[in-house]
């Protein structure tokens, strides 16, 4: 077994994901700077800018977790290595998304309730007075492009690595066109004299952030409290884990099977049964062939304890 937490066969895929996440951070920074230059008083732009800034959290957390998984050795202080760092990063990203989403929604609704009229004036470029809204629209259009490509590239890597943090980031990036469209509609609406369009678009964007955050929070807390492994894209139980459970039940009839997830790995406990006499690698029990067998890191057997039922 590897001395670090990352299975050997994932190293190349992980290296590709790390390179992609550095590019992700670079392009996100260009978006943050572009949007920041033309923020103005628009609630939509401020919300979209904060959303873009928040977009840095998942890739940064992924890189930190990946570094620890790749280079953090098991030690006396950390005998199980750092395979759960990814889960912790997922939780941190989820908390950030949820908290900021709620705050942005509150701000947008307050602005809507107070009927705040956003002022977007003009600036001079090459001797011409240009309405700042046009630059905001250009920045919003620019902010749509990089996430679309990055999200598309992240998805297969996230599936291969079974990485929820990367998967959440991929889905957020792919769905970014929705918030971008809301942002564009907000600025154009503001330009058309619909004062409410700005706050309304901000509320829609913040609802999307909040929704992403709550979904990620539900999935990440399930892992932290040793819940059964969850699917990558939802809070439903993972199909891998359900098949594994069936496989172990078939192998050990009458046993109670408990599965939990530590990062991308699954650990199984087979209760009320003795370990088989043959020495078997945990991967032997994986039901779907070898390609994802690395997910099963451990199978423990807990024999029946006499008098256990009496207490």
């Amino acid at each position: 077994m590897s001395d670090t937490s990352l299975p050997q066969e994932l190293r190349e895929t992980m290296a590709r994901a790390i390179r992609l996440e550095y590019w992700n951070i670079f392009w996100t920074l260009t978006i943050i700077v572009t949007m920041g230059l033309v923020l103005g008083q628009s609630q939509t732009m401020k919300t979209a800018w904060i959303e873009d800034t928040l977009g840095l959290v998942p890739p940064v957390m992924f890189l930190v977790a990946a570094h620890m998984e790749r280079y953090g050795h098991r030690s006396r202080r950390f005998p199980f290595g750092f395979e759960r760092v990814n889960g912790l990063g997922f939780f941190v990203a989820a908390v950030a998304l949820t908290a900021v989403g709620a705050l942005l929604l509150y701000n947008a609704l307050m602005a809507l309730g107070k009927a705040e009229h956003a002022t977007v004036g003009s600036i001079v470029i090459l001797g011409h007075d240009i309405w700042l809204g046009w630059l905001m629209i250009a920045a919003q259009i620019y902010s749509l492009i990089p996430p679309l490509f990055i999200g598309r590239k992240e998805l297969p890597l996230a599936r291969a690595l079974n990485d929820k943090l990367l998967h959440t980031d991929a889905l957020m990036n792919k769905a970014n066109w929705l918030t971008g469209a809301a942002g564009l509609a907000g600025i154009i609406g503001l330009g058309l004299g619909w004062w409410w369009a700005d706050s309304m678009a901000a509320a829609i964007i913040s609802l999307d952030v909040l929704n992403d955050g709550i979904k990620a929070l539900r999935s990440s807390t399930a892992e932290l409290v040793d819940g059964a492994p969850r699917a990558l894209s939802s809070t439903d139980l993972s199909e891998d884990a359900q098949n594994l459970c069936e496989r172990l039940k078939a192998e050990f009839p009458g046993a109670t099977i408990r599965l939990r997830e530590t990062g991308r790995l699954i650990r199984a406990e087979v209760h009320d049964t003795h370990p088989p006499s043959q020495h078997r690698h945990p991967r032997y029990y994986w039901p779907e062939g070898e390609d994802r067998a690395w997910r099963l890191a451990q199978v423990s057997f807990i024999p029946p304890i006499e008098g256990d039922g009496e207490s």
Binding site: H117, A118, T119, S122, L190
Partner: peptide, 11 residues
């Protein structure tokens, strides 16, 4: 606040 065309004219 928000009268963006008028604001642009004055600017």
């Amino acid at each position: 606040n928000g009268e963006n065309r008028w604001i642009m004219t004055v600017e």
